[in-house]
Amino acid sequence: MTIELSNVRFRYPEQPHHNLLDIPTWSVPKEEQVFIHGPSGAGKSTLLSLLSGLLSPSEGAIKILGERLDQMSGRQRDQFRAAHIGYVFQQFNLIPYLSAVENISLAARFTQQKNTRALNDEIEELLSALNITEKSWYRPTRHLSIGQQQRVAIARALINKPQLLIADEPTSSLDTVNREAFMKLLMSRVAANQMTLVFVSHDPSLSSYFNRVESLNNISIGGAWL
């Protein structure tokens, strides 16, 4: 299993009597691509933050790739996230004043100890595979189109060869043409790298790309006041 959740509850400190998420049990096998949909404010992004170790659950156990995330220290979770989890956001996936190559090498900084030459070769290979033209590699990413930025974001998420890829509404700022191209590219890379994908969106039309579709309401019985 890539993801195993049992009796996970999450409450924000500002609302100590309100379980935003209450997940009795939920799991995702290796290499499965899960599409999670749900209304805004239901806790989709919070679930992803729990899965990536940015947040700790108020109660319960979170096991990712066989490791108990909830029992790790903050530093251990940071290292685990850098080594095993890729993340793509809706927007602001990149530091705008850095180039595509710099953004990707920054993501590699927190894990591998490769030499600069080997890392640059790997980055250039990845950018070429994602159809990003060479002239865009060293420009600040703020000068790239939204479509190009999202492709660089995939490259950034893939550089450490993560086993779990988390995508938080990555297509919501793209037009129809770019959205289709992005999804095809993403799914092909996920398949090629044999990754597990957890993809969150409120757009149900994207569900056709996935082999498992779930509503957050079916995963979590949260939202109840204690």
């Binding site: 940071d78 850098a82 956001f89 996936n93 993501a107 927190f110």
Partner: peptide
């Protein structure tokens, strides 16, 4: 957002 991004890619506080 930059800080959030750095955290997501594994930067410790």
């Amino acid at each position: 957002r930059e800080i959030q991004l750095l955290r997501v890619i594994g930067a410790p506080p």
